[in-house]
C-alpha cells in the first residue's frame, strides 16, 4: 500500500481548471517531485492533499484513510506536514517559539515541546537564531524555519512547496543536503520545485503537470527525455521564465 494515494483529483476555480483528473502515489520513504510550468496546478494539488482546499472530484488517501472533509490541522495530526511557497512565519514570535507551535501538537508539555523544537533547529542549522523574532530572519533563514516547523510536527510525509526558490547556489545545495538527510530518516517527501538540479538529485520519481493535467511520470532520466515535457517547458522558455 502506498503512503499517499491521489486518485482522479480535480479542482476548478471559476473558468480555470487548476487540477484535472490527477493521480499519483508516494510510497513510504519515497521522494517524489511535482514539476511543471507556473500555473500548472502544483500548489493547488498540494492544498488539496493538505486539507486547505476541498477537491471538486477525486480522492486523497493517506495510509489507506480518505482525507475528505478533514481540516488541515487534522490532516497534519495524521502525519502530513506542508510548507508554504510564500513563507508564513509568526513574525513577532521568536524562532524557537515558531517551531514550538509545531512540536506542541505531539508534546503538549511546553518544556518538552521546547526541547524538541531546539533539536529540530539544530538539525536545520538555525540553533544560533533561536531567540530572534522570526520577522528578523533573512530569506534563506526563513526557508529553513519553514522547513523546521514542518519537521517539528513529526510527519511521515513532508510536502515542500518551493523551499529552494530565490536562494543562492550554496544555500540551495545546503537545503538539498538537508532534505536528503531528512529523507534518510525515513520521512517521505513530495516536493514542488523549479530548481531542476535539486529535483534531479533528490527525486526518485517525477510527476510532470501542465494545465492541471499529468503529462508525464517516471524517473528523472525518463522525464528529462520526454518530448512532451520538453515542449511544456519550451513554451515557458519563450515566456522568458525558464528554470535554470
Amino acid at each position: 500500500m502506498s503512503l499517499l494515494e491521489v486518485r482522479g483529483l480535480s479542482k476548478r476555480f471559476g473558468g480555470v481548471q487548476a487540477v484535472a483528473d490527477l493521480s499519483f502515489t508516494v510510497d513510504e520513504g519515497d521522494v517524489v517531485a511535482l514539476i511543471g510550468p507556473n500555473g500548472a496546478g502544483k500548489t493547488t494539488a498540494f492544498a488539496c492533499v493538505a486539507g486547505f482546499l476541498a477537491p471538486d472530484a477525486g480522492e486523497v488517501r493517506f495510509r489507506g484513510r480518505a482525507l475528505r472533509g478533514l481540516a488541515p490541522h487534522a490532516v497534519n495530526a495524521l502525519g502530513i506536514a506542508r510548507t508554504f511557497q510564500i513563507m508564513r512565519p509568526f513574525p513577532r514570535l521568536s524562532v524557537v517559539r515558531n517551531v514550538m507551535i509545531a512540536t506542541l501538537g505531539r508534546h503538549p508539555d511546553p518544556r518538552e515541546a521546547e526541547a524538541r523544537a531546539r533539536a529540530v533547529l539544530d538539525e536545520v542549522g538555525l540553533a544560533a537564531r533561536a531567540a530572534v523574532p522570526a520577522g528578523a530572519l533573512t530569506l534563506a533563514e526563513r526557508k529553513r524555519l519553514e522547513l523546521a516547523r514542518a519537521l517539528g510536527t513529526e510527519p511521515a510525509l513532508l510536502l515542500l512547496d518551493e523551499v529552494m526558490s530565490g536562494l543562492t547556489e550554496t544555500e540551495t545545495e545546503r537545503i538539498v543536503g538537508l532534505v536528503g538527510a531528512i529523507n534518510r530518516r525515513g520521512i517521505a517527501i513530495l516536493l514542488i520545485e523549479h530548481v531542476m538540479r535539486a529535483v534531479m538529485s533528490l527525486a526518485r520519481r517525477i510527476v510532470v503537470l501542465d494545465h492541471g493535467e499529468r503529462i508525464a511520470e517516471g524517473t528523472p532520466a525518463e522525464v528529462a527525455g520526454d518530448p512532451r515535457v520538453i515542449e511544456a517547458y519550451l513554451g515557458e522558455e519563450h515566456a522568458g521564465a525558464a528554470a535554470p
Partner: peptide, 27 residues
Amino acid sequence: ERRRFGIYLTAIREDETACEALGVPTF
C-alpha cells in the same frame, strides 16, 4: 501563557493558516 493553550493563542493571533498547517486546531 505557560501552557499549550496560551502559546497556541499567541500564534493564532499572528497567522491562523500557518497554525492549521502546523496541527493547531484553531477553531
